[in-house]
Design a binder for these strands. Structure first.
Lengths: 365, 365
DNA sequence: CGGCATCGTTAATGCGTATTACCTAATGCG
DNA sequence: CGCATTAGGTAATACGCATTAACGATGCCG
């Protein structure tokens, strides 16, 4: 029987000059393609050095004279790894409304990814992305990468879980203990918040109120927990009235409300940081409208960093979230998962920021 | 003769769940791998053989339930396309020192890429010169994508040229006419700068000085050209003394220098925008130190947007670079190149910004 | 009723590289 | 000197997908 004709792809036009392949290097050096590959991709452990120095040089010379550059696609296909890490945020990665909110994380993510030799694929939850539909399986696009980093306060649990169950390496930036099996890296809000409360207590404040938004994200509840723990550690009362929770602090936090608290003996306020910074903004404007001076008449603290547009204001007492470090830690963890290693300690400490908005209470000498 | 053993790669561990392949989708749908490929990558021209609707749906259903995503490397290797566009910047894409410099571009890039159905790969080569990225072939990694967008004031010409010669679609964000064959999208600095000068001349300024950094990037020389053209168009003298060029404007731009100019009759200054904003900063502080009021005693204009940390200052007269639109235009151009179409008009107009730092000169009623 | 398009699907490739099993000579050893 | 070992290298895969010749099953027409 005749050998059947070759179906396959049309062979490349002979005349066309294209990038040199290993095969051409091999021909020029008078060796086989496999030898070229062995020479050009040396194994880290010196065990692979079975090619004689002479041949090695011949191959290297041939490769250089042809200007050979390995094809990354082929390389990655053969290695069964793409050296790609995904970054998925549930809002646009580059939001225009919430100015630059993820930027500091990305700084660390990019740097660490580069250091580890990974490139990044940016996915967006909001976009109607090309590869897949915007539907419920939008998340499956991330499988294109070797692993994926997720950023955002709110997370679709079910789909994430699906990825994890399939053995796809996933790291969440932000505490996600309630999602079984999802690796995460987070800031230690509990400890940091507690520390801020301790600082206020040391200054002499006896009644402190936490202002938070109406949001059940872990970042919020962690701060509340740290707040209560801090009160307790300082021996201060911690009733439910010490936490003011509002869906719209800028509306609900009126000057009257503030004065009422002051009359009750509240001398310090603590606000959580969110995307919008609504709690802090509400607090600031209420204090201003009430005509109270900070920090002589009232002390304020911000559990995080101030919004960028408030850069001109006096530096708030509170703590800084080491976002670049968090991003870097997340990438390290993800890379470890991709390499099949185990997850490690996920908490990154925050840095206390003395700031200028807290001082001793008035009645306290 | 016995069929020889299969050398090749060790088959994947049976128990391990890995990313689904077309073969698995095929098995689940009861068809062949080829059918899956035909269904999942439909030819643009409807000429291709058509798979029956029933089979099509079965395959799509199977693919969805498995969360199948095509392997970009394999796709690329098989000489098709990825739906991936690369983004490569010659400095870190998310720099720490020069805050947010590329961010506004990326906003447009991301949005447009999503709209056209592409995902983005952020090549992290330049930031730290990480693993294997330092070499002269650092750029070749971008070949994993269908095409690549390059951002940065300074560009390694040789390597970019190599990519272009090999027929790889490349678009540079920023004018690059001197690089033969490199497509680019840029802001029309010449026209915009000329317009700003015209505005100053109309206000009555007769002597205007341009402050620029010692940098030969096209963005700088375009502004200078526009500046000189603007002077000419307004019938103003344009000697070499009208351009002040300094490697460190914040040092060289002394209050004394400023007063000397004022004595010579200079009533307006124009600064270029750069990554660091050094020219503008130098100008501002020199004016302040010289005790001159702006805009009553001296008019200032900024050829671009002010640095983020000067957001509190009065809005500078000058123009805005429509960065998101530029990013979007670059992506559109790149997508066109990937599709094999021709390049089109690359210039995007800037938007004049009246601002508050320019007014009629003092001696002018 | 046989030839012959037509339709739907599959088998068999190729892309460029990495990885092994295997082969051949040269060398070592008792 | 005979056999085991090592050094140096090659052939034959596999990686996952796209492509296309070929094939079986119809339906159509003369």
């Amino acid at each position: 029987m005749e050998p059947r004709k070759r179906p396959g792809r049309t062979p490349a036009p002979a005349g066309r000059t294209s990038r040199p392949r290993q095969a051409e290097v091999a021909r020029l050096a008078g060796v086989s393609q496999a030898t070229v590959s062995l020479v050009l991709s040396p194994k880290p452990d010196g065990k692979g050095r079975i090619i004689s120095e002479e041949t090695r040089q011949r191959v290297l010379e041939a490769a250089r004279s042809l200007g050979y550059v390995p094809d990354p696609a082929a390389r990655r296909l053969a290695a069964a790894r793409n050296n790609l890490l995904g970054v998925f945020s549930f809002t646009a990665t580059f939001p225009t409304d919430v100015q630059h909110s993820y930027y500091p994380f990305l700084v660390g993510v990019e740097r660490e990814a580069a250091a580890l030799g990974y490139d990044l694929v940016l996915f967006t939850g909001s976009s109607t992305g090309g590869a897949g539909a915007a539907g419920p399986d939008a998340l499956s696009r991330v499988r294109l990468a070797d692993g994926c980093l997720f950023i955002g306060r709110h997370t679709p649990r079910a789909e994430l879980k699906r990825l994890v169950e399939d053995g796809f390496p996933v790291v969440h930036l932000g505490r996600r203990e309630e999602l079984e099996g999802v690796a995460w890296v987070g800031a230690d809000y509990v400890e940091a918040t507690s520390e801020v409360v301790g600082h206020l207590a040391e200054l002499g404040h006896r009644r402190i109120v936490l202002v938070r938004e109406d949001d059940d994200a872990p970042a919020s509840s962690d701060r509340q927990r740290g707040f209560l723990e801090g009160l307790e550690a300082a021996g201060l009362p911690s009733g439910p009235t010490t936490v003011f929770r509002s869906a719209d602090p800028q509306r609900d936090l009126t000057p009257e409300r503030l004065r009422a608290w002051a009359d009750e003996g509240v001398t310090a306020f603590v606000a959580e940081e969110t995307d919008t910074g609504a709690a802090w903004r509400g607090l600031l404007s209420a204090v201003r409208e009430a005509g109270l001076d900070c920090p002589t008449e009232v002390s304020l603290a911000l559990l995080g960093s101030p919004p960028a547009d408030l850069a001109g204001e006096p530096e708030p007492t509170g703590f800084d979230i080491p976002r670049p470090q968090l991003g870097a830690a997340a990438v390290r963890l993800l890379a470890a998962l991709v390499a099949g290693e185990e997850a490690r300690e996920p908490l990154v400490s925050c840095v206390f920021r003395p700031g200028l908005t807290a001082g001793p209470p008035r009645s306290h000498p």
